[in-house]
Amino acid sequence: MGSVRTNRYSIVSSEEDGMKLATMAVANGFGNGKSKVHTRQQCRSRFVKKDGHCNVQFINVGEKGQRYLADIFTTCVDIRWRWMLVIFCLAFVLSWLFFGCVFWLIALLHGDLDTDYKDDDDKSKVSKACVSEVNSFTAAFLFSIETQTTIGYGFRCVTDECPIAVFMVVFQSIVGCIIDAFIIGAVMAKMAKPKKRNETLVFSHNAVIAMRDGKLCLMWRVGNLRKSHLVEAHVRAQLLKSRITSEGEYIPLDQIDINVGFDSGIDRIFLVSPITIVHEIDEDSPLYDLSKQDIDNADFEIVVILEGMVEATAMTTQCRSSYLANEILWGHRYEPVLFEEKHYYKVDYSRFHKTYEVPNTPLCSARDLAEKKYILSNANSFCYENEVALTSKEEEEDSENGVPESTSTDSPPGIDLHNQASVPLEPRPLRRESEIGSRR
């Protein structure tokens, strides 16, 4: 089982795998120059863009038009607004034209077009017409509009002379109601789609790998820009990579689940303020055997998904993003964004995407760390350097704002901070800030 798991979770494809794949392509008759073999020097295209759209195009789909027309309502909801407006206008105009032609044909076959009612006051002739005051196609078209929109100006009306005319008036009224219901329903469904809710759900630009509770963890940050909550919010993550099976089958995008606390339930989050999602790199993680150097040379993509129900409509929305291997910062942490004021908490989104480097973060893999092949620094050293990194950030910001350097908390000259780390230190809580992250 261990060997199978290692093969499945191998992220960085070796040169031997690339040569094996190329040999397979030639042997199977696919070596026509169009096949692409992804190596370390040639990274694959992003499968999920940063804005959440999937970078996929469908080609050679059989009976595409028929399949889309069979699900016309979903098609109308998914198309762009400009095409929705075109369909909206065409549906009414074509129905008016169709029934206008029908009423014109009825008048033509009944002989109503030969009668001039402007110079004739004989009401008996008017009563013999199928539709009064309809003696041309324009008049028939206007009567069709008046019937379907129930305008009723009063000059044109159907008589009991022709039952077919009466039937067409009733039929057009029913068709008009159906068109109204369909168009209004599609427009309302399109307006109520929770897709735009994703514009106020954000992911951090970069993911980070750092120590948390004595273990290497992959972390990324999510935030909600609205005050309205995302009900039943939960997160998922998958690692996408290519691999070759033991039988020699090439899988271009193998999807591997990344555990973010599904078993323990901590994948469900209360997204009021930005939260750091934590994936513990343990023996079940696809990143277990990867060191910093392996991450730098790897070719994979981590897709992160945030799902929840919109509070206003109770409709489920899904926000997506992805991180390539070069977008994962090893040995970094996110800057705090949640600050405790006197009577409330304040979230500073200008710090949302910012990170700071944490010294002495192990550069080895989580496996080597678990097997004690890498000796961690003293816990006080880690905490102290973590505090120094934050303090230096604040000093830089104070210097930019014009604060005198004498007010900063610099260490005395001639003292090495790293050498001082081995000395037991008193706890130094942050002056006014605390970061709330997901705790395992």
Rank of each mutant, 00 (worst) to 15 (best):
S3C: 02
A389P: 14
G29A: 13
G248V: 02
Y344V: 14
G62H: 12
S35G: 08
D160L: 01
R46L: 00
P163E: 05
D368G: 08
V56D: 03
P359Y: 04
H53C: 09
G414L: 01
K34M: 14
L90I: 06
K190H: 11
I375T: 14
A181L: 14
T409P: 10
G33L: 08
E307I: 04
W96S: 05
E63D: 07
N206T: 07
H205S: 14
M211P: 14
R8C: 07
K125D: 12
R8V: 06
T149L: 04
S136K: 02
C43G: 13
V158Y: 02
N380V: 06
N401Q: 11
V77F: 14
Q238R: 12
D263M: 09
G214I: 02
K215P: 00
A370G: 03
R46W: 01
K49S: 07
K125W: 15
L239K: 01
N32C: 09
S264Q: 08
E301R: 00
N55A: 10
T409K: 09
E283S: 07
Y153K: 06
G111I: 00
Y356W: 13
E133C: 05
M315S: 08
F182L: 08
R197Q: 10
V231G: 04
S381F: 05
P359H: 05
V222F: 06
C76H: 08
N198P: 12
T115M: 10
A379T: 13
V303D: 03
E307C: 11
G414S: 12
I184P: 05
S132F: 02
I305N: 09
A366G: 07
I415L: 13
K342L: 04
F58R: 15
T6M: 06
R236I: 03
R44C: 09
V337K: 02
G248P: 04
I87L: 13
T245H: 14
G248F: 03
E405Q: 06
A140Q: 03
S381C: 08
E400D: 10
I87D: 15
F300R: 00
R197Y: 13
L287E: 00
D116G: 12
P336W: 05
D348K: 01
C54F: 09
D294T: 06
N198L: 10
I209R: 00
A107Q: 04
D17P: 06
R236F: 04
C130L: 03
S136C: 06
K346Y: 03
I295R: 01
S377I: 07
V202L: 09
I151W: 08
D121I: 12
F382P: 05
V86A: 14
R80Q: 07
Y288D: 00
E146W: 02
L230P: 08
Q66F: 13
Q172Y: 02
D78G: 10
Q318C: 11
K125R: 14
F352M: 09
K292T: 01
M309P: 10
G185M: 04
V388C: 12
V175S: 06
M191Y: 05
D263G: 08
V56R: 06
V235A: 09
G176L: 03
V131Y: 04
C162R: 00
D254H: 05
D284H: 15
G111R: 04
E395I: 08
L376E: 15
S322V: 00
V260F: 03
P412W: 06
Y344K: 15
E301M: 01
W104K: 01
L329G: 00
A27Q: 12
W81G: 04
I174N: 03
A314L: 09
D114P: 14
Q148P: 05
D160Q: 06
S13W: 05
G29L: 04
A139L: 02
G152I: 03
H38I: 07
V310R: 10
L290I: 10
L253D: 13
C54D: 14
F339Q: 15
Q42I: 11
P404L: 09
H418A: 11
F300L: 03
L290A: 08
G176V: 02
S264R: 13
W81K: 07
C101D: 00
Q148M: 05
E335I: 06
Y9S: 15
A165T: 02
L113Q: 02
F352I: 08
C383Q: 14
I251F: 15
P424R: 09
E371G: 05
I209C: 05
L218F: 03
T159Q: 06
Y344C: 12
I277Y: 03
H229M: 11
I145A: 09
D267N: 08
F171Q: 02
C130A: 02
C177D: 08
D284E: 14
S377M: 04
V231D: 08
S273V: 12
L108W: 13
K342G: 09
H418I: 13
K20L: 03
D17K: 07
T361G: 02
H353L: 02
C319L: 09
F143D: 01
G100P: 00
Q172G: 02
E335Y: 03
C54L: 07
E335Q: 04
D121R: 06
G29F: 02
I87Q: 13
I209E: 02
A370Q: 09
W81A: 08
V93K: 04
P252W: 14
P194K: 03
C177K: 14
V102D: 00
R432P: 14
L253Q: 14
F262Q: 04
T159W: 02
L216V: 01
L338A: 13
G65H: 10
A70T: 04
V77D: 11
D296Q: 09
E400W: 08
V303M: 10
C177P: 08
E340F: 11
A91C: 05
I436R: 10
D71F: 05
Q42W: 05
R5C: 08
A298R: 03
F352H: 00
M309W: 14
I277P: 01
P362S: 01
H205M: 07
N401D: 13
E15N: 08
N60F: 05
G261M: 08
M211L: 08
H279A: 00
V202T: 12
C43K: 12
N419L: 12
A298F: 02
S434K: 07
G152T: 05
I415F: 09
K373R: 12
L218S: 00
G65F: 15
E396R: 08
T115I: 04
E301H: 00
W220A: 09
S411C: 10
R431I: 14
L240Q: 04
K292H: 07
V26H: 14
K215M: 12
V77Y: 11
L21F: 09
I258V: 05
V77G: 14
C364T: 04
T39S: 11
Y9I: 14
L338S: 04
F339Y: 14
K128D: 04
I436Q: 10
V175Q: 06
E247M: 10
S228N: 08
N386W: 03
L113H: 08
T74C: 12
V310I: 13
S95A: 15
L218K: 00
F58E: 11
M168C: 07
G18M: 06
A233V: 04
R67S: 07
L271E: 04
T407M: 08
L430Y: 05
V403Y: 08
Q172E: 04
I375S: 14
D180Y: 06
A389Y: 12
S381P: 09
D282A: 10
R320H: 11
A233M: 09
I145W: 10
E357G: 06
V187G: 05
S399W: 07
E247D: 09
F88M: 13
S408F: 08
C76A: 11
G154P: 00
V48S: 02
L218Y: 01
S434F: 09
K118I: 04
N32E: 15
D119W: 09
T407R: 11
A27E: 15
N259E: 10
T276P: 11
C101W: 03
K393Y: 06
P252F: 14
G62L: 13
V403Q: 13
K195C: 09
G62E: 04
R44L: 06
D122A: 02
R44E: 14
L329Q: 05
V358E: 15
S246K: 14
L369C: 09
R5A: 13
C43P: 14
L290K: 05
V48L: 09
I328W: 00
L390P: 06
E232G: 11
R67M: 06
S246T: 11
I251R: 15
S399N: 10
L253V: 12
A366T: 01
Y288I: 01
R432A: 15
P336E: 14
K195T: 12
C89L: 13
R243Y: 14
V358C: 08
R67I: 03
I179N: 14
D119Y: 04
A22R: 13
I106L: 06
H110V: 00
G402P: 13
I375L: 14
H343A: 08
P404I: 11
S399T: 12
E396V: 12
T245A: 12
V26C: 14
Q172C: 06
V272M: 15
F270V: 12
W330K: 01
T75N: 06
E15Y: 03
P427N: 11
K20G: 07
Y68M: 11
I151H: 08
M188L: 14
S322T: 04
